[in-house]
């Protein structure tokens, strides 16, 4: 499936990660019944359940950027904290607003 994603990216030149195309294709094929859930379920559960483990090696390469992080730690941490708060607030407010107006329509 990933190879298929790579192929699509290569053919079309779109700037979307190949793994996302693979993921959407998998969902579509499951929906269409071409791939059966029981074929992929245990593999998928294993991979998604241990997602954290696969983060470790890329994280370790941080030691190569020690100087960069040290010199820019203020913009890095401040922007992450403020942006995370903004995302949470804007998402929950938008969701609530639309749910409310939808609900009124139905009533």
């Amino acid at each position: 499936m990933l190879a298929f994603g790579e192929l699509v990216v290569w053919l079309t030149g779109v700037r979307i990660p190949s793994s996302i195309i693979g993921m959407l294709t998998l969902t579509l094929l499951l929906k269409l019944g071409i791939i059966k859930l029981r074929w992929v379920k245990s593999t998928s559960n294993f991979l998604t359940g241990n997602l954290a483990f696969f983060f470790i090696p890329p994280g370790v390469s941080l030691m190569l950027y020690y100087g960069l992080i040290k010199s820019q730690w203020i913009p890095i941490t401040v922007s992450i904290i403020i942006s995370t708060i903004l995302v949470m607030a804007s998402t929950v407010w938008t969701y609530k607003l639309i749910r409310k107006s939808n609900g009124n329509h139905r009533k």
């Binding site: 793994s19 693979g22 859930l37």
Partner: peptide
């Protein structure tokens, strides 16, 4: 990358 593909399930 296969992990991301697996999120399709």
């Amino acid at each position: 990358s296969p992990c991301v593909v697996a999120l399709g399930v």
